[in-house]
Structure formats: structure tokens, C-alpha cells
Write a protein that binds this DNA or RNA. Sequence first.
RNA 1: GCGCGGUUAGCUCAGUGGUAGAGCAUCACCUUGACACGGUGGAGGUCACUGGUUCAAAUCCAGUAUCGCGCACCA
Length: 889
Amino acid sequence: MAELSTAYEPAEVEVSWYQRWVEGGCFHADESSDKEAFSIVIPPPNVTGILHMGHVLNNTIQDVLCRRARQEGKEVLWLPGMDHAGIATQTRVEKMLREDGQTKHDLGREKFLEKVWEWKEKHGGIIIEQLKRLGCSCDWERERFTMDEEYSAEVTKTFVHFFEKGNIYRGKRMVNWCPVSLTALSDEEVIMKPQNSKLFYMRYELVEEPGKFLQIATTRPETLMGDSGVAVNPKDPRYAHLIGKHAKRPFPAAEIPIVADEHIDIEFGTGVLKVTPAHDKADFEIGVRHNLEIIDVLHPDGTINCPEVPELDGMDRFPARRKAVEMLEEMGLLDKVEEHENNVGYSERAGVPIEPRLSMQWFLRYPQVERATEAVANGEIEMRPARWKKTYLHWMENLQDWCISRQLWWGHRIPVWYRKDKAAELQGAESLDRGNMERGEIHVGSEPPSDPENWVQEDDVMDTWFSSWLWPFATMDDTARAKFYPTSDLATGPDIIFFWVARMIMAGFEFTGEKPFGHVYFNSIIRDIKGRKMSKSLGNSPDPLDLMAKYGADGLRFGLLRMAPTGLDLRFDEKQIEEGRNLANKLWNACRYRLMVGDAGVGGLDAANRPENLPIYAVDILAKLDALAGRLDGAYADYKFNDIAAQLYEFFWSNFCDLYLEAIKDDFKGSEERKHATLWTMDVVLARLLQLFHPFMPHVTEELWTRLEFGTEEFLATTPAVKGLVLEGLAADGIAAAQGQTAAVFETASKTRNLKAEYNLASNKNVRLVLKPAAEWVAAEAETLALLVGAEGVSIEAEPSMPKGTPAAVTPMGEIYMPLEGLIDVEAEKGRLDKELEKTEKELEKSTKKLGNDRFIERAKPEVVEQERTRLAEWEEKIARLREMRKSL
RNA sequence: GCGCGGUUAGCUCAGUGGUAGAGCAUCACCUUGACACGGUGGAGGUCACUGGUUCAAAUCCAGUAUCGCGCACCA
């Protein structure tokens, strides 16, 4: 018999099993298999990323699904990989260069990209190793990267495809500009944040009415050099007379027209807007409507570009704001300043306010919008929790063209070449589309032009999401696709429903004619205990590796899933993880106990050799196990991971450990037959339980599976789940009777322990008990009862004669008396019985009232009425006995 | 402004019409031959509020309050 240590130490066990699984090929997906396919593609983490709690939750869910599918005999592909993360990676490498006093321009594009690849090989993909530590059962032979050669070819092809179809065009538009990353961003990459700003009320003098002023409120005085007009609402009587006249812009001094535009909110500020078409989306549109000049007063990096105002020229936009205010004040044009909360768009990556900026960008008109909308609307693609469907549909109805170009070097370069002789003209052209290609002015193709010396390639690269939206199929070759596409499930966070999920659906239909996945499961967003989002800057994000070191990967996985509500935010508390570790330890010790009481291998997954005579406790636990398996099937079908975890926990901890294991401890002193039946039962329950726990806690279950010799040579990870009930063929009324008796014994034990506690007897103090049996069968279970409550023995007496004041209780097995020498306290016992009586009478009153209501008898379901009658009878019986006991005092 | 979600024990959360639950925390007792990462027994809830439907409401409906999220947006 192998000795097991008293406490489970996960660290070594986990790492070593992971290695054995990989070496054993447990996670390898075989496309030539006849088995039904199950596939998931990982939401590719950033190559710069490190594992955080969100990853842990998301990937544990995927691992559970994959491991469960393997147990169900499916051919499972979990395809892993990483995303090249354009902005994040380029920023990282640029920072490294800066530390050496260099910029990317010193190196040039090609050399810089070499550096990025170098960085990637050396430092990239830490997260992959971390996923392995977590136990993720990915097929690592198929790891993909969005910048791989084959993958990149797919991305380029996609661009060419859409350009030729006319979905892609280039144009000068207002886009979200990140002054730190120096690139355009898509609308989805901008996060609106409420800001405590200031609203400055300033005065512009009227040209036509010298000495009279127009008061204007603004939050951005630093852009007033770009004002090319002043706008009021045409319905605003205060300003009607000014429309068509002019105002004096303070610096650089200019006369700008006053126009009327419906967009102006009469209520806001003074009802007058300074129009800065180059630096605000709404202003741009007003400018277009009224033919106002577009004056760009910002450099791409957010510094002021206005040589005419040297005080401000070259300053950063925020100091410039303060300076501009000072200047206005000095000129006597600032009336007042108000505190004002407004929403400011921030760059998701760089964390700074974006600037609306007019620039030349590439756009995509989304394809397959109708098909992609319909597929989710009609349930062809199912989203869970279902409410995300609405969010998705709402977004699909309001699609704006996707700005797919980024002014970066790291990424898939746009496969467009301009004719050298016309390059300058073409690059500056207001719009560019397939017409230019047809006229031979540009070359758009997967391959460069055959005479490259005559062409100049477009500098921009594509948005990283423009590569990840192909992920479900671009990661697979034709054979893999034939077997594993469409993928079965997608598990991801709701925060990327637009970035990724919606776009994948559109791309899937466009390129494969099929949906990319059948179900989308949106996991919770993890917050800290105060409900704040986890972030590096707040320092409220625990390092999952630390947690795994402390509690084991299994503990982390289980603890997180047990408390992860389906689709609500999850407030993370390390206590939950501790609970996971405790569970692993409890599993370990239950198995340790099994090995202490008998040699391994008496029973296992196969329940065919079931002993003839099973003790009632065996019947009870096996019946509960059979029921559990059925309930878990249902919970898996609904993706209720927290429910699955809670049910496993409850069955194992409460039913198996607290009740069953405590009730069978004397079996090993008894007959060989009884001993064998109990060892067999323990093995059957443990084998099945380890299998059921395995998707959640793969390492400890695999270790125990081996220790208990359940698998001869095979891994638990690849052992198919058993189907069928352990108690198959056993008479239902026999099972029910055994369960009834077992429940009665446990309840009696609980009542009796309570009696002991009320008399301040230590739980390990053996007392003497007398039982007046309520049924014939109870005599046979008296010894077990004694074991459970800590008693020297339980004597069965039909008419016990007890000294007055002997502590007693009414239980399902009968009346229990606890004779205590020299400790009789009649008053105490009276008080105790009175309390019990009072409680029971309250219950009786409730039942009586219910059953006295004719409408209840008439309208309630018959079984409910019947149940209530049974209850009433039970209360009455109990009260009668309690009263009798009370009287005898 | 539009949409979605939450409000149940001190905390984190289960609970879709029929006797209010779990874990943690707390109190008391217990190192009993699996486990103190443990055991036993307690205490702790007018299920946010108001009204309605129903024999019966934490659960269904309407409204209110409050917290949060998403979209749009205020210069």
C-alpha cells in the first residue's frame, strides 16, 4: 500500500502530470479520427500578454469543455495561439529602443521589424507557458501566431478579396487618433470616460457691432486657433439677428462667420458653439454643411501646430489649454469658469485622450451583415447568457465602416502599391478604390508587382483585429477544416463581442459559407472585492502564478469556477481559491483513507460486479451518485459551470465524506462480505467522482486515479466516461426504503449530537443512549448510530423507564434518551422540551391553516396537498410524543 | 437620452410558484486511526420598497428607489 502524506502538495504533482499528458499525446487532435469532432479555438492572447485572472477563468472554462468532450469520446481539438497585438508589441519594442537612446526611425522599417521578431522570440508568449501551468489541454502541435507566414497570407488575401469586391476603400475622414501610438484607432478601441473638466466662458467680439460680444462656452480653448466659425441654433431667438454676421477670433486674430445649425443645443452653455472642424467630429460635420475652413492646429503627437501664435506653438495640448486660458484672461475675454463633467474618449491601449483627426485611412464596409445578423437572431449561433444576443443585434444594426488601417510598422502591411510616377498624387487623393486598380494606377494583390522598382508600397498596416477575425478557419488547413470547422464552442469575454465575435461571424460566412462556431459562451468579467475592474495600475489584480503556487492550479480552477456566476460580473476573493485548495486536500484525504482500510482495486468505473447484498448506506450513496451524474449532464448542457462545481462539491463533501464515510468506519471490523461491499462501494464512488471532477481539477484527480489503481495503463484524461447507473436493475422500492432508513439514521444522529451539545458534552465523549424504536429496522442500525454520535452503545428498549429529567429527543428512529448520572436537571430539560414544542407547534399551525383553506384544497396540485397532509401528521405525532415526555417530568 | 443587468445572512453568491440555501466570517465544543486545508452543534434573513396576479410570491406582472454595464452624446 502506497503511503499518502497527510496534506496534499499540488505543485510537483501538477507540473509532472502536465508533462506526462503532453508526452502521452493526450491533447493531440487527429483529423483522421472517426470520432465525432469537438473543437474550440482559443481567444488568442496578445504575444505581449501575461496571464491574468480573466485568462484563468476563460481558459479554465475552455479546458473544462474540452476535457469533458474527451470523456464523452469525442475527437477534441483545442487550438491555441497568439495574436501579434500591433500597438502593444510595437510600443514595447520602441520603449526598449528608447532605453538605448534610439527610435524606430534610426533603424528603419526593416531593421525595426527584425528587432520585433527578436523580441518576440525572446520575451513573447510567456502566457503560453502559463497556460500550461494552469493545465490547459491545448494541442500545442498546432499553435498558431497571427504573423505566421501562412496566416499572414490569409490576411493579405482577405484584404485583396474585399478590395476587389469594392468593400474596401481609402478616404480622408475624421478618425480617432492616438497621439501616443501615433495611429488611427477604430471606434471600438476608444473608451469613453467621464471627466471632471472645466467649462470656460469666453467672449468673441462682434465684427458688425463693435463693443458687443458673443459669449461662448468651451472645454477646449487650446484649439480655438482652429475655429473657423461660430454656430447657433436657428430656432434660438437670442441670436437670430446675428446669423450671417461675424465674430472676432482672438488669436490668431481673424473674422469668422456666425452660422445657424440645428445641431446646436440651445440649453447647453450659452447656446453658442465655436466650430473647430479639424478637431471635433460634430464640428467637422457642421463645417462641411457650412463650407467652413478646416484648420489643423495640432501635430500628430498632440502638440500645438500654430506658428502664428508662438506662445502656444509646440506646446503639449494640456499645458497649452492652461496657457490659452491665461491669454484669454489677459485679453479680458474670459468671463467665468465652471466645473463640468463630460465624456472624453480614451485610447484603450495607450490610456490617453484620443484626438479626432482628419486623416487618410482605409475603411471596410462590413460584409455578410444580414446573414450574420440572422444567424444569431434565429439561434443558429447560440449566445449564452442569452441577453448578449440583444447587444450583438443592436450593434449589427448600427454598423459604421471599419477603419482598418494603422500607422504602425508591426502588422500585416496593406498590399497596395502606387505607381511611382503618380505616387504623390495617388497618396494624396481624396478617395481611392477599385476604380484606381482597374485603371492600373495601383496594384493590389497577394504578390507584389513584377516590376517593384516602379511601385511604392502603402506604409500602413492593418488593424490587428483584421487578422483575428479570420482565426477560426485561418488557423486550420483544409484537412483540419474538414474535420473541425465549424468549431463547436467559443468561450470569450463579453468585452470583445464587437471587436472579435461579431466580426468572426461575418468573416466566417464570407469565406467559408458557414458559421464559425455553434455556441458562444460569454464568461464573467472579474472584478476585485470592491467591484473595481482589475488593473495593473490599481494593483488589485493578483498574479495567478502566485495563486497557483499557494493553492495549486486545481484549487484556483475550482475555486474560480465554483463562484463564477453565469455572465454576471464576478467579485474575486482569494477565500474562494482557498476553498478550492481545501477541496483538493479533502479529495486527497478521502482517497488516503481508502488506501488505509484496504488494498486498492476492489472496484472501479465498471459497476458490473456489484455485490449481492449492499448495506443501506451503500445503496444510498450510490443512488445519490447516479442522480448526480444525471444532473451534471443537464448543467453541462446549459454551461452552468458554477452549478456543476457546487453539485460536485456538495455530493463529495457533504454526502460522501460527512455522511457515508462516517457511517462505514466500523465495517472493516465486521464480516469479510461487509468489508468487501464497502471497499467496492468506495471504489465505485471514488472512481466515478474522480472522473466527474477531472475537467475541473485535472491534476489531483489524475494523481489519485493512479494511486487508487483505477486505470491500468491509461490516463484518466483520456478514459471515456462510464454511462449507465450503478444501481441499474435494483428494485426502485428497495432503493427508496434504504434511502429512507439512511436519512432517518443521519437525522437521528444529528438530533442526538444536538442533545449532547446542549448538555455541554464534548462531541468525542462517549455517552450511553437508550432508544425506544419507532420501527423494527432501527435495531439493526443502532451500532452505526452509536458510531456516528459518539456513544458507548445504544440499547433498544420498547418501554424504557428513565429517571425524571433524563434528556430526550423525538427522532425518526424513535425516542432517544440520554441518561446522565448525577447530572439530572429537570428544569433544564423542561425548558428544552418546551422550546422544541413551541417550534413544532408553530409549524403545525402553519400546516393546519393551509389545510383549513378550502381554496387551497380545491386549487392546489393534489401532490402538494398530499405533501402538506403528511407534514401535518408528522407534526402531530411529534407533538404528542413531546407532550408525553414533558408530562413525565 | 436608449438598452441591459443586479439588489436574498456580516461578505461573496445559489435559488423560475409549494417548509429560505451554500461557502467564508462568527460563537461554543472537539487534535476521536482520512483530512485542523478538519469534525460537531449553534447564532444570524419582514429575500430593496410599493402595489397587483394567485389557494400560495424571493420566484410572475407593474411601478419606485438604488448600484453597475453597454450604446449614443453635451461644445
